[in-house]
Design a protein around this nucleic acid. Structure first.
Lengths: 380, 380
DNA sequence: AACGCTAATCGAAACGTTTCGAATGTGTCA
DNA sequence: TGACACATTCGAAACGTTTCGATTAGCGTT
């Protein structure tokens, strides 16, 4: 590398550095690297077995018949040399990497943890590798990571998207790689998807609280620009309406899915002059914030305030209070998403987009207490 | 594909199918696939800008100076065509994929969830992609997945290994890709590693229980063949010894890290004639099992039995009982592991193996109660 | 006017596979 | 015996980059 004309260099080369090219994440120049002991290649095998590389390839892939004698020799050579096929070269030639990309907002959110786990297993079984990215609920990060994955030529993408817009729309439209939307739909993006019937799930949960006698029910939701939050909000409104209760905007708070958001929102709700008797939190990290707020403000659950939330978790029934939750069928969600994508990868490219809507299940435990004298007919 | 001589075919081609070749996860033959709209290549850009591909490459990578005029034309062409560099081709040529492999036993174990999250972020920042695999505590699965990752030519590997032996030893010795061991050391494998001072951590926890007045302390540990379990067991014994208490093997149970193992082990401990007054669980899923066993057997914590465990988690201080745990510095563990690997990737190949030992921290909450009349000097 | 120096550009050879079509050998049938 | 089908094998051209060495042009020196 010459730095003779530093000045010009800075100008011309700027393109890459400034990221103005649509080629994401370039290598830092000057980072040389060479594998010292080059791995044995097919050519080495071919030579050792005194055959052509074409024959070696044919045997390995079973794409043509190879005589027993040569098969023997080749197999021996492979063992002797310790040959391993270079999947990169193969990918280049085949146009397929047998790798998929998976992006989720937060892997530490137990819902996504579980789904990632299931998806990972499914693709592992199918011989695919999974590249995992976390977008941290940030649209730019998401765009960048999707680009990173596409650069790597993933064969498909499973996306629990963040925000609207972004490059997702373009990617789906270009249709070079199949995309499956997970948990969250995307306005105007017409592709395979697996989502929950959020509206119904929240409707059931709120209705349950209403049946317990609650009249003022706080609702902590996520940023309003993603589809599940729409559905959940609608479910909330409809449940109130069905019960003849007014919708009061002071009872609704928005957060960005983090624990701290749940904490702040809960603090506000609990400080209201006419405090709600129950709070529903739209995801798991936020409900932790809710519980901490309740603790910090000196109240207790369910005596002073009832709590329910979205997403079940393993601890939910071993501690006190045992949280009433809306459990998503994580296993099914993960498997269905994987199946949709695997189906596309198997060649079924032109089928119309399929949208799977799964049902949540209200897990009634004891974090919500009955209020006053009420009729105890609860529809689970 | 011809199936004329089915019989022979089955015989010769068998190699691949039977998996006797050391080429893992072959494609199923007959799975054709072609991208319909081939993405624009560098050649297209070169033609559009009326330059050579060498010049395009030089501009994009900043490896040589390109005149302003040509830079302009090339940048324009890239934008017009919507060119994106093919990272696979680049990898093949460069011998580097800017991708690392990460294997953990269970991503649903919150300790690993957190560590994975941190590592993922660190590599994301550095422009690396992360391929994630879960070994499910199974040695064969682990071997297969490591092979899968190596096939994919990952530049490095971070492994929270399972069991002893396997191909890990060979891989580290062949030294083609740098390996960082996470959480668990590996007998006879000399490479970079980040682990916890398990012995000390458990020593502190048990000593704390002893100070509370406990004399019979149950200990639920993992399979004994991985390093942290050694250390933790030693810590247990030493704490007992320091307190002048006998080591009783009936108080020690082994499980395979799953919730159900913790449940079974706890059931056994709680059914002992002379029941322990405290139980320490060696990981997070297992302590859930412990709590369930306590509930199912009709006892309560901490009144009837004290519980402490390894690995902190977000819920630990919002529910009752608030669990006393040994918190691992997950952030530091993840970052250090990432740094060790990034350092190797940056070219520092020949430095001797570095082993980082981090300290755990006893988070005293209220799942352990003082027993009888005791001196309340607790060393945190 | 011949020379050397530098900057800019390019042609072509890799990287390690897959695959197509051609070449070779072998046996069958008219 | 010649023609033909079929089973094996192989040479060589891709796949889309990077990079080395060669080439050209411009320019100041002697």
């Amino acid at each position: 590398m010459h730095f003779n004309s530093c000045e010009k260099r800075r100008i011309y080369v700027g393109l890459a550095k400034q990221g103005r090219l649509n080629v994401s994440k370039m290598t830092v120049p000057g980072q040389k690297k060479q594998r010292k002991s080059t791995a044995p290649t097919m050519l080495h095998v071919a030579e050792a077995a005194r055959v052509s590389v074409a024959t070696v390839s044919a045997l390995i892939n079973g794409t043509a018949t190879v005589s027993p004698e040569l098969s023997q020799r080749i197999a021996q050579a492979i063992r002797d040399i310790g040959y391993k096929r270079n999947a990169i070269a193969r990918s280049l030639k085949m146009g397929t990497t047998r790798t998929i990309g998976l992006t989720v907002p937060h892997i530490t959110n137990p819902f996504f943890t579980d789904v990632v786990s299931v998806i990972q297993q499914a693709f592992d079984r199918a011989g695919y590798a999974v590249m995992l990215c976390c977008t941290d609920e940030d649209l730019n990060t998401q765009d960048e990571q999707i680009r990173l994955l596409l650069d790597r030529m993933v064969d498909g993408l499973i996306v629990a998207r963040v925000g609207d817009g972004g490059i997702l729309k373009r990617i789906v439209e270009d249709a070079n790689v199949p995309v499956v939307l997970l948990d969250r739909l995307c306005e105007g993006v017409d592709t395979d998807a697996v989502v929950l019937d959020n509206q119904r799930a929240v409707f059931d949960a709120i209705t349950y609280l209403v049946h317990l006698g609650h009249r003022r029910i706080g609702y902590i939701t996520g940023t309003s620009d993603i589809s599940p939050m729409h559905g959940r909000m609608t479910g909330y409104r409809e449940a109130l309406q069905a019960a003849g209760l007014p919708f009061e905007s002071e009872l609704v708070r928005h957060g960005n899915f983090h624990e701290v958001d749940g904490y702040n929102a809960s603090m506000q709700l609990l400080s209201l002059h006419d405090r709600p008797t129950a709070v529903f939190s739209a995801n798991n990290p936020m409900v932790i914030g809710t519980m901490k707020a309740i603790r910090d403000i000196g109240l207790s659950c369910p005596e002073d305030i009832s709590v329910a939330c979205f997403d079940d978790f393993p601890w939910s029934d071993v501690f006190v209070p045992q949280l009433t939750t809306v459990a998503q069928p994580v296993q099914a969600i993960g498997e269905q998403a994987a199946n949709l994508l695997l189906d596309r990868l198997a060649g079924n490219r032109d089928a119309p987009p399929r949208k799977l809507v799964l049902k949540g299940r209200l897990m009634i435990r004891n974090s919500c207490r009955p209020l006053g004298a009420i009729v105890q007919t609860v529809s689970a």
